[in-house]
Design a protein around this nucleic acid. Structure first.
Lengths: 223, 223
DNA sequence: GAAATAGTGTCTATAAGACACTATGGT
DNA sequence: ACCATAGTGTCTTATAGACACTATTTC
């Protein structure tokens, strides 16, 4: 039986995704304390058994404390553990990922850096591997769920929705087929008499929609 | 900073799947010690930072120690944590799942119970939830990967492969379409001049195949 | 040659992609 | 009127399913 002194360090880390100028980006924060103080890293912290009812709760608490971000789509990714990933000793991190719509971004702590996923520098600990796994999960799950919609505001247009799917999956989608599928899947609903504002460039206003359910919906076919 | 005394209990648990008379089954073992001594449960144990290089290594070690099973396909599922799942206190279990071909089953510890997934009794801790999550993962991943093949011996016939996909996914598959897809995907290779034995009932022998790669292969389309 | 399973060929149904077309508002 | 984006209709292509057919072995 392992006594408490033999227990691993248990932390949670969260990969935060957002959109930046039409590109997929991630939010990183300079570490406040050693190890790796000052270096950009995933937002993480210790699981506190006296406060947290689970790891999702721990991740939610730490996100709020360290970044001010709340109300995000947040999901467990997987755990990363081993003797060498943290200089403090054998540690286990339950990695999560979250999607940050632009409106929430505005409320984030000022020290948060927003970097396109292609321009992320080498990260401390095994955060590179965690980020890669989160990206793979985001891309994989986007093809058959409403996951990318959580990068958008609550109401959005079909061109916006198509664009975010294209950004996340990294490939252009057929417009006609996209509309057909979204329609058949009944995952979004029209806001009656609500249209996006027209601008000098975006001339014709588009119909506004919202998710039929404000929760992740999976579907069998692929976008 | 959380001192060691505030650290959660960290364990690993593994859901073991196998085939039993053409049905999907799970391997459970009576617990040797309290809590819940004597009750059938998932195979699990403490992560030992002094011995284990990670949670997969911990699960592999514990499986070997408690069941004698080695060489299985084994993958992390996700973590389950909270204050109430274990009477010993706030605990975190990194759940895994493994696939046990019939040949490996023969080498398993004698106290292992093999139960069809439909006839599993209520399990201690949150093992019901872990089993349900593992089953969902197995079913979901089977549609687009070679996962079910790890329930078969190293060499198998196409009818056997089709049957294991049907068993795992719980629905009949079209024979012609199945062969077409398996062929196009190039995931298996023929063993030249090797055929399954014919019996009184299975009259025409079938061509034997093996996986082209003895590792999980994902494909984009669905079986 | 009858029985039973292994394996093939081909038609049909469905869904995805291509792409030309119409619609609407701003300038 | 023209531009730019929003949105539609329809043809083609790719893939999945249905199902009848042939092939090979045992009895």
């Amino acid at each position: 039986m392992a006594g408490p002194e033999k227990r691993p360090i248990v932390t949670v880390d969260t990969v935060l995704f957002t959109l930046r100028d039409g590109a997929l980006a991630t939010l990183l924060q300079p570490r406040a304390k050693p190890p790796h103080a000052g270096r950009l890293a995933l937002v993480g912290g210790y699981v506190r058994p006296d406060q947290d009812s689970g790891t999702l709760a721990a991740a939610t608490r730490i996100l709020a404390e360290k970044t001010g971000l709340t109300g995000l789509f947040l999901e467990q990714l997987m755990s990363f553990a081993g003797p060498d990933r943290d200089p403090r000793g054998w540690s286990l991190s339950v990695a999560h990922y979250a999607l940050v719509p632009e409106a929430a971004l505005a409320r984030a702590a000022p020290d948060i850096a927003v970097l396109t996923v292609g321009e992320v520098p080498p990260l401390p600990f095994d955060h590179d591997a965690i980020l890669a796994a989160a990206l793979a999960r985001l891309r994989g799950k986007s093809a058959w769920s409403t996951l990318p919609a959580f990068l958008l505001p609550e109401t959005f247009t079909l061109p916006m929705l198509k664009s975010v799917y294209e950004t996340v999956m990294g490939e252009p989608l057929n417009d006609s087929a996209f509309r057909r599928k979204i329609n058949e899947l009944r995952i979004i609903e029209e806001l009656p008499d609500a249209r996006s504002p027209a601008t000098a460039e975006r001339r014709r206003p588009a119909q506004l929609y919202r998710l039929s359910q404000r929760a992740l919906v999976a579907f069998d076919r692929v976008i």
